[in-house]
């Protein structure tokens, strides 16, 4: 057998918990294809009864902002308090805010 081995691509895993409203990034794994990534995610990230739904996506398909962009991206919103709805009273029976 040759020792040459192709590395499986990296996938990012998102799991939605039992009461969770959205999928949460839980980690990453290697898999040969999408189907295997799902089964690996099932075995690696939901075996302690955490999840009811799994998303996997090839890591290379995620576009991410860089550290260099941090200031122009996020700094301008830091002093604009009027963008937050903090001047309203939220009724107790309105969930998920």
């Amino acid at each position: 057998m040759t020792t040459e081995k192709q590395n499986w691509p990296l996938y990012e895993v998102f799991v939605r918990g039992k009461r969770g409203l959205n999928h949460v990034h839980v980690g990453s794994l290697h898999a040969a294809d999408d189907r295997m990534a799902l089964t690996h995610a099932r075995d690696l990230y939901t075996r302690r009864n955490e999840g009811v739904s799994i998303w996997v996506v090839r890591s290379e398909h995620i576009a991410a902002s860089t550290r260099d962009e941090r200031d122009p991206f996020f700094e301008p919103s830091a002093d604009k308090v009027y963008r937050h709805p903090t001047f309203y009273d939220i009724p107790d029976d309105v969930p998920h805010i």
């Binding site: 039992k18 949460v24 955490e50």
Partner: peptide, 14 residues
């Protein structure tokens, strides 16, 4: 979501 910690979030309801 009450917490950024992923497992706290997943365990919500327990």
């Amino acid at each position: 979501m009450s917490d950024d910690h992923v497992y706290m979030t997943l365990a919500e309801g327990h």
